[in-house]
């Protein structure tokens, strides 16, 4: 759900160089309250460097960042107080209990001593660790540690929640729980900046998505707006046997076929107007000696958009 209102985060023309590598080049976007914005890109695209500059962890070489109307630098205190940062790696103290971890960060973020225990109890409820509050974090499962890691970012009720690939290495059940929590937070009016290289997560969570690759924001918009960039191209997956190489060549000469590649059990195609093109496509394959066992047609998604914009897959 996209929200209106003044932006909680505004960043323009962000630029960061590490030696010869221009890691981020001219990235800019805004996020409004209650809006979830996803930065979608493969590993090394510049996602973490971008959010490191947004959160004031890293000096930027160029550009501006404003959080809740306050300029962000590495020395900003007020701007940082408006952000809940949840790093990709688990950032908790294993020798402290869940309650001690939360209480420490609550006080570090300036919560009054009297309010700390109440707020810590609330967050323990939100992340489902109330019954394990007195246990050391080292005794937790991976999923519980992830939830504690997220809970720390929520303590001070930030205006902007920044999550750097929070589901990396998480089991499907915990992932679903984490995504559900983020949806609830967004619904409560919090602005969310979410980085991921999982297309499915971006499609599920994000009101708007910025596609980033090679340090540059290639495109941004709602899912509908981004898919429109690809046009009426559908993904067609064929399970087939026989002369697959000849079939591949036969497909590529058809005007409706944009791209074609082999997979273990058949062929993957990007086809303009699949519904209309499919009869001719099957006829060409049959003539090339390919026996088609099944056909799966998928509408364009962000994966296809990324492929369209960068010429390679998200997980390349």
């Amino acid at each position: 759900m996209q929200r209106a209102g003044p932006p909680v985060l505004e960043c323009t023309a962000l630029r960061k160089r590490f030696g010869d590598l221009l890691a981020v080049d001219g990235v800019g976007f805004t996020i409004a309250g209650g809006e979830t914005y996803g930065l979608l890109g493969p590993n090394g695209a510049g996602k973490t460097t971008t959010i490191s500059m947004v959160c004031g962890l890293l000096e930027r070489d160029g550009g501006t960042v404003t959080v809740a109307g306050r300029p962000m630098t590495t020395r900003s205190v007020e701007a940082k107080a408006a952000i809940g940062y949840i790093p990709q790696e688990l950032a908790i103290y294993p020798d402290l209990t869940a309650r001690e971890n939360l209480a420490f960060f609550a006080r570090l973020y300036g919560l009054p001593r009297a309010a700390v225990s109440t707020r810590v109890a609330e967050v323990l409820d939100v992340i489902g660790l109330a019954d394990r509050a007195g246990d050391r974090a080292s005794e937790f499962s991976g999923g519980m540690k992830r939830r504690l890691n997220i809970g720390i970012g929520l303590l001070h009720r930030p205006r902007l929640l920044v999550l750097d690939e929070p589901t990396a290495g998480v089991d499907p059940q915990s992932r679903n729980s984490i995504l559900g929590s983020i949806e609830e937070l967004s619904d409560s009016g919090m602005a969310v900046l979410y980085t991921t290289h999982y297309m499915e997560e971006a499609e599920r969570l994000c009101d708007r998505v910025g596609i980033i690759d090679g340090g540059q924001l290639k495109a941004e918009g709602t899912r509908r707006e981004l898919v429109a960039l690809v046009g009426e191209t559908d993904r067609v997956r064929l399970s087939a046997a026989g002369e697959l190489e000849a079939g591949l060549a036969a497909c590529l000469v058809l005007p409706s076929v944009r791209e074609a590649s082999r997979h273990d059990d058949g062929l993957d195609l990007l086809v303009d107007g699949a519904a209309a093109a499919l009869p001719g496509l099957l006829a060409a394959l049959g003539a090339a000696g390919v026996t088609v066992r099944s056909v799966d047609v998928a509408e364009p998604n962000l994966e296809a958009v990324f492929l369209h914009l960068t010429g390679r897959a998200l997980r390349d």
Binding site: G56, L57, T74, K80, P87, A91, I92, L108, G110, I152
Partner: peptide, 15 residues
């Protein structure tokens, strides 16, 4: 090494 330093750096406190 454990990543908690970045959480401290991201907090509204002086380095």
């Amino acid at each position: 090494r454990d990543g908690t330093l970045w959480r401290l750096v991201a907090a509204p406190i002086a380095r």
